[in-house]
Amino acid sequence: MASNVKLKHQNVPFWVIKLQEISTLIGKEITLEWRQRYALNGMVLYIVSTVYVCYLSFKLKTNQLNPITWNTLFWIILLFTAVSAVSKSFTQERAGRLLYYYTVASPQAVIISKIIYNSLMMSALSGLGFGFYAFVMNNPVQDVPMYLVSILLGSVGFASTLTLVAGIASKADNNGMLMPVLSFPVIIPMLLMVMKLSKNALDGLDRAQSLNEIAVLLAIDAIVVVLSWVLFPYLWRS
């Protein structure tokens, strides 16, 4: 199929075709999600109810929460949301449909489109989660734009790491248990970095001090995306 595409658009550069393929696949993901809205609504309800459970568990004395606990709790909520949101990205679709993608699209386009789509979904979910969390649990953040940047970087990082792991777990038989076991250790470096970054924002430190963390986060993201690009074709074949 790849060679067919090349023949058809001989004067269009290769990467333009790739980009078209990826954007088509992203469009497909969004359409699919919109058609079965219950999954998306379920995720929104998941994060909102988790935040509310935390709020009630602290016996409504959230103003006594110190900033470190506040920050850690928020990231743990996001981590669990990310794991359950991303793990459905391969199991949601039936085997027959996956076989169909296999014949029409390249594996790289599939994984990149899933990573981009999951990043978008996670950014939206965690932005919403932050809004609600700050609403009920007070908002001790001193540098809100920087905190939002850290949430964005964290969501993109979580989504890109978890997408490949979700692909791995979906191939196994009992993937419900496997997904957290496989993903938690892999995601910890990123979680530590993003918590440090958001702690800087929480304390309102000078932004120049956070550049180091941002660079490391972007580097880990780059490693993960490149690895997904290289490794996914092998996963796809089985």
């Binding site: 791995i168 191939k171 250790p185 470096p189 996963l235």
Partner: peptide
Amino acid sequence: RISAVYNIFAFAV
């Protein structure tokens, strides 16, 4: 195949 993919991924992290 699948554990090889995870092994490479884990090593890179």
